[in-house]
Design a binder for these strands. Structure first.
Lengths: 340, 340
DNA sequence: AGTAAAAATGTTACCGATAACTCTAAATTA
DNA sequence: TAATTTAGAGTTATCGGTAACATTTTTACT
């Protein structure tokens, strides 16, 4: 591995001069600069960021931790985060916690030991609190995405989960649906709780009764076993005519279940969900959704994070951004009323 | 930031003793070990990987560089890579080059400076050669994914691009299509070249003529401007009845273009492509594709990489794995023959 | 020309950890 | 009991950079 000392020796200058050329700092004569540059080229020099980080106490690396790398919501978000980071001259590393607290803990360790300058993360849920406290204790700036964690104050970018869910329910009610079930993520996740609230509000506004057994709680990640959900659905009598799911992945799972039973959407069951389905949705517009501004989540979250890092001294108040969701009506809801 | 020196002072031992406790190396009395452990707990000590890397010249980190984080092929691949890495006790960092050589170069720098132990990467294309040479020169083990790069010998996991494309063309030909166009990724990417070859072979086998103007070359990533493609398509007279695209993203782009013109798939144009569309494809099975074993790409590639890292001394011959693609017939091809 | 100021370059210490070596005190052996 | 091991801990140098200060060289000005 070529170091500045190797360069220095070959160029007949001191290591410090090489360092100055690399960083364009201090005063260097053009002649020396050219000479050093030439030697660096010749020797294929690459600065050792590890050594640099050690002395500078900063890495210019940021970390994005998402909970499901196969979910288009998060990958689109990642794109936004990446663009914002790049714009400000930061590099970005990704991690995927897979909705698992254990994997999240692993990544938090990686984050601390890698000494990244800041973290943008979607926490696995309320039990992520100790992880966040650890980051806080080690003075690592972070911004949360999509999910609040009770017990910690910090910058955060949220979607308007309650209102989005309410709109979806209202949309179903207007189409004449009266028995609307909900398949939701874990209630230890704030956005799942808010979506449930929005669901209840939507029912109330349309004067529909809330039934406890119309709620099925599971994980936001993809399921390897659908049998519990199947049993739940089979147990509903009369069955619902529509299902609202807490996110896009769960919508896919529900549809997988229904198709397995030979049921069609929307003929036999209507479906709506939170979050859009990535680029493919443009092409075969099928699922009616409350689309979140995934790219903005990433872009704004990252911008907040960088701002926070750069003004580390001045204690700004915590910021909370709430992005509205947009109802995209497609064709996964069957009109039950005669009038359309 | 708490260092081993802080611990050492408080525990009344030398820094080296603390280091020994952390790494479970050397001989330490139980009493001292317990005392040091206690102080570490109290002070919330986290080892500084930066300092460690500097002296050890290694981490337990691996890097996965993909070219499109919004493409389900790569995210599924990432899942496989992650699972394999975890199984062997490695942590994984992700990067997204976005099919761009410049971003790839940035990530290569990050890779070198972060001192990861190995890299699994889908190169942006043939011009990635210098990046790979750089990794090689710096002795960073790597395994390529999906794309060969002429000029470098290394471990690699490939899909059978030629055969897959051939099958897709044959499928179209059997359905009675005679004017089959192809929208492909850059010819500086080996898999694009092979898919073009497969396309030509497929035409030949069905005794269809090859027309140079039936090929439109663009980027594998999503396009922000469809006008060139639009002009190309408009210039074809008579127009093709079917289009084969070099990957899933391009299929989506083509469909976006067609929809924009009020054309329907498959009624007005048939479409097939390489790579499947992620979980959503199970739900609304629409696009006929040559599906690659994305998960296996990641899993096998990562396994090869780790093996390579662990036997760094013994010079194994380079391995090349070719995974077959599977034709999944759905409903994006219109039968032109009378008999179905 | 002589001196101050400015420009160019060099020296030293340090960031936080670990390897390799050294030292001390207790345990073992003859 | 003296000599020799050995367990347990400490010292020093080092990884590859950079900040802060020191020094030398060049330029400018009286």
């Amino acid at each position: 591995m070529v170091t500045i000392y190797d360069i220095a020796e070959k160029a007949n200058v001191s290591a410090m001069t090489v360092s100055r050329v690399i960083n364009n700092s201090g005063r260097i004569s053009e002649k020396t600069r050219a000479k050093v540059r030439k030697v660096m080229e010749e020797m294929n020099y690459v600065p050792n960021q590890t050594a640099r980080s050690l002395v500078l106490q900063q890495t210019k690396l940021l970390f994005l931790l998402i909970t499901d790398i196969t979910n288009p919501f998060y990958t689109t978000l990642a794109r936004g985060a990446e663009d914002a980071a790049k714009k400000q001259g930061y590099r970005l590393l990704f991690g995927n916690s897979d909705e698992s607290l254990e994997k999240e803990a692993d990544y938090v360790t990686t984050i601390l030991t890698t000494r990244v300058d800041g973290v943008l993360l979607a926490p696995a849920g309320d039990p992520s609190l100790p992880h966040l406290e650890l980051l806080r204790r080690h003075d690592v700036p972070f911004v949360l995405l999509d999910r609040e964690v009770p017990g910690i104050d910090c910058d955060i970018v949220l979607g308007d989960s309650k209102e989005g869910a309410r709109q979806l329910v209202s949309h179903l009610a207007e189409a004449g649906h009266e028995r609307i079930a909900m398949v939701n993520g874990s209630s230890s996740i704030s956005s799942a709780r808010l979506r449930l609230q929005g669901y209840k509000e939507g029912l109330k506004l349309s004067e529909l009764p809330f039934r406890e057994d119309h709620i099925f709680e599971t994980s936001f990640g993809s399921l390897n076993d659908l049998s519990e959900m199947e049993a739940w659905l089979a147990g509903l009598n009369p069955p619902p005519t529509a299902i609202l799911t807490g996110n896009n992945v769960l919508a896919v799972e529900v549809m997988r279940l229904l198709h397995g039973q030979g049921l069609r959407v929307p003929e036999d069951m209507s479906i709506v969900c939170f979050d859009d389905l990535g680029p493919y949705a443009d092409v075969e517009p099928f699922l009616t959704v409350a689309a979140q501004q995934a790219y903005q989540f990433g872009y704004m979250g990252m911008s907040m994070l960088i701002e926070r890092i750069q003004d580390k001294e001045t204690a700004q108040p915590w910021k909370k951004i709430v992005l509205p969701a947009e109802l995209l009506v497609r064709r996964s809801v069957k009109p039950l009323r005669s009038g359309e």
